[in-house]
Design a binder for these strands. Structure first.
Length: 251
DNA sequence: ATGTCCATGTCTCTGCCATA
DNA sequence: TATGGCAGAGACATGGACAT
């Protein structure tokens, strides 16, 4: 993590397990690392040294427009602002592969270089879509930047905008558990738990499946983590595994 | 066309417990 | 008491379905 910024979000090579034609934009930092804690003195100092995004996005101090924001199911969570000139400025850069790091709770986000930036500037999303058209999406700001429900809704909306209109993706497609994997899980559970502990269970599962091509499948099975397997069992234990059955798999 | 919901998989935080 | 590994639970992301 030293020296120059070779860890900016960048178009990563589309991995072998990724859908062809799509570009994977990996976030430079994990969510937890990007969160900023104003309570922490060193973070507070960073915030004090940073500059807030200005009225070109919207005037934060101006009165909101009357009425609730349109275009959202949760208008209580968002401000109905009057957008600044940036929302209609087509002279900017409109990348084909837009970068986007999901909003984190709090107004500020930590960057790879250690500084913090105002997430307000991420509300206006600009890119060139798959048809070559310049697009601008102005997503209303949350009333409370610390409200995770608002942040989640904002992230979902923004990511959909990118996903529907560009070939950029932010995470590799995950593959669902298939029947042979689930049969193995069922066969190796005792009273809903692995007899020899989860660690062993995960190892054995991956020895059996990870990297293998199963009959009727076109892709190699992925490595599963502890969390993935315990969640699978937690989710389907009561209705299926504990009754000696496996959950239905599609395909 | 676009916002949200649903189902599902993964990441992350927290607490427990054995041991140093 | 401090530490490290592990398990459980909750947060949250994704693609597709659904709604308007």
């Amino acid at each position: 993590m030293s020296g120059t910024d070779d860890n900016h979000a960048a178009p990563a090579a589309t991995g072998p397990s990724n859908t062809p034609g799509l570009t994977l934009m990996t976030p430079a930092m994990k969510r937890s690392a990007r969160k900023v804690d104003p309570t922490n003195p060193s973070d507070a100092a960073l915030i004090a040294a940073a500059t807030k995004a200005g009225a070109e996005i919207y005037d934060s101090d101006a009165e909101d427009l009357p009425g609730l924001v349109n275009g959202t199911n949760k208008p209580q969570l968002f401000r109905n602002v009057s957008w600044g000139p940036a929302a209609t400025d087509y002279s900017d850069d409109f990348p084909i592969h837009p970068e986007f790091s999901q909003f984190v709770p709090g107004r500020w986000e930590r960057m790879p270089d250690g500084t913090v930036v105002d997430q307000k500037s991420k509300l206006i999303v600009k890119f060139t879509d798959k048809k070559g058209n310049k697009r601008i999406f102005a997503n209303p700001p949350p009333k409370d930047w610390n409200n995770q429900e608002a942040i989640t809704a904002l992230n979902k909306r923004t990511v959909q905008q990118v996903r529907r209109n560009t070939d950029v993706r932010f995470r590799e497609v995950v593959s669902a558990y298939v029947a042979p994997e689930r049969r193995w899980i069922l066969a190796n559970l005792t009273d809903g738990k692995p007899a020899a502990g989860w660690k062993r269970f995960v190892e054995q599962f991956n020895n059996k499946f990870a990297g293998r091509l199963l009959p009727g499948q076109d892709k190699v099975r992925p490595v599963r983590t502890h969390s993935s397997l315990t969640k699978e069992v937690e989710r389907f234990g009561p209705e299926f595994y504990s009754k000696g059955q496996i959950p239905p798999s599609r395909s």
